[in-house]
Structure formats: C-alpha cells, structure tokens
C-alpha cells in the first residue's frame, strides 16, 4: 500500500477511528515534510487531538497507515514511550509539567538520555547535560526561574516550560496542541517567534484556534473537519475556502 520511497517525516493515510459509534477520524490523510512548520485548524470535534493521540501511540487507529521517518517506522505498532524515544514530542492542550519539581528538574527529566530504570537510578548530571539545560532555559526564557517549583509558574511560563521539555527531548517532530491558549498578546507573539526558531531544526505541527497567531506563523495550514482534511494551503487560501468558512470560520 504505502509508497516506501516517500520522503515525508510523517505520513498518515486513510486513518479512521471511532469511539462507540462516533467517528472521530474519517479516512484522514496527511503528511509532514522534514523541517516543515505546519498549522492545523478546525472546529471542536474535528479530530485534531485524536490525530495527535494516534501519532503518539495513545490511541490505535481502526484502519489506516501511520508511518514516520520516510516510511521506515510503522507508528501503529509502537507505544507512547517508544514513539517518544523515536523522536516525536508532544505538548498537551492543558500545560502538563511536573509541578512538584523545579523548572531545572523538569528539563533534566526531559533530557534525551537513557531512560531505563537503572540508568536513571545511578544518573549523575554531567557538565554537558548542564550546558544543554542552560541553553534550553535561555531559549524558553526561564533562566531566572530555574530553581522554582513548576507549580509556581504563570500559565504562559508553564506552556514554555513544556515546550522547553520537548526541546530537551531532541525530537525530530514536535506536536504542539494549542500553545497560546490563555496567553497574553505579548506572550502569544513571543511564542510564534519561539516556534519558528524551533522549526529551523525540526518539524513542528501546531494545532491552534487563534487565527492571528496562525497568521503570525505564516505557514501552510491544514483545516480538519469531521475527522478528515477539508482544505490545505496558505492561510489566505484556506480562509477563503467556502467549505472552511461554512464549517469553521463562519461560526
């Protein structure tokens, strides 16, 4: 079925999944190229989060193919931990950081090192790892709060910390679910800059409702509705599509 010569980093073909009769994804096909920054929009229930669940191994598709890294890896056969180790990072809709740990510890845990039980038991922070964490702290603008508990961060800072944790994971592909929800305008603008920076070295998929933010990103947009792709293209192309207007923007 699958064209093994594909160069796509992520390749979804005809993916369907239903929950108790409700079709969350309906033959969804979708690709992401290496180094691409892609935005996904769509009304509630369009299947955006379910799609991320499928890519990260949280949910198994009823049918369809999900391949990663140029068709080399079948993601439907892997679980969350394996997929994360393969290089797919995911940021949840609701910021999920370890609130009882400091900012520093959060990043230390996320570092892409051996994650086995005994390796972590006897792990010691090396100078190299230290530098890497410092670097990420600078990137996500949290250096001054490094020793604070994550619980004490503001909402926006938690979002950034989570993005920082994804960076520490050194993924090839980042899935970012509504990164600017609940952020101030200034934070939103900064986040757009941050994501564009990140996308220089890896692929990023951003799910977002904030059209202004998407415009700021200035990238290819995919609009989902009822579990499949409605339209794909530049933001201007997609937002002028009558189907998109009827399904999403018009409401």
């Amino acid at each position: 079925m699958i064209d093994k010569t594909t160069n796509s980093l992520l390749y979804l073909n005809g993916v369907s999944v239903s929950f108790d009769g409700f079709k969350a994804l309906n033959s969804l096909s979708f690709t992401v190229e290496p180094g691409e920054l892609r935005a996904i929009i769509g009304p509630n229930g369009a299947g955006k989060t379910t799609m991320m669940d499928i890519i990260t191994g949280k949910t198994r598709p009823d049918s369809g193919d999900v391949y990663f890294d140029g068709g080399k890896i079948d993601l439907t056969k892997k679980d969350e931990a394996e997929i994360a180790q393969l290089g797919i990072g995911r940021k949840f809709q609701k910021p999920t950081v370890f609130e009882s740990h400091t900012v520093w510890d959060n990043l230390e845990l996320a570092l892409n090192r051996n994650r086995g039980v005994f390796a972590t038991l006897f792990y010691r922070l090396s100078a190299e790892d230290k530098n890497r964490i410092e670097e990420i702290l600078t990137t996500v603008r949290l250096t001054h709060r490094r020793d604070e508990l994550a619980a004490n961060l503001s909402h926006g800072q938690k979002q950034w910390l989570e993005i920082g944790m994804l960076l520490a994971q050194e993924p090839k592909l980042l899935l970012v679910d509504e990164p600017v929800a609940g952020m101030t305008d200034a934070e939103t603008a900064e986040t757009a800059i941050l994501l564009r920076e990140i996308a220089k070295t890896r692929s990023v998929v951003v799910v977002e409702h904030d059209m202004g933010f998407i415009r700021d990103l200035g990238v290819k947009v995919t609009c989902l509705a009822e579990g499949s792709v409605l339209a794909e293209g530049s933001i201007d192309f997609v937002s002028s599509d009558p189907k998109v207007i009827e399904n999403y923007l018009g409401r």
């Binding site: 969350e80 999920t96 370890f98």
Partner: peptide, 28 residues
C-alpha cells in the same frame, strides 16, 4: 533522591507526561 525518584514523582503527578517523554512507566 535519584533521577529515578524524580521520574517517580512525575509518574505520580503527571503519568502521561512521563510516558510522552519516552519513559516506560510500567517498568518504573
């Protein structure tokens, strides 16, 4: 107090985050 212990607390507070960071929660 080891890094493992930090992961452990992570499992307690946000299990799915630990999993999506690539740890095998069941082994932990």
């Amino acid at each position: 107090r080891s890094k493992f212990g930090k992961v452990l607390l992570g499992v307690r507070d946000a299990e799915s985050r630990v999993r999506f960071l690539g740890f095998r929660v069941e082994n932990i």
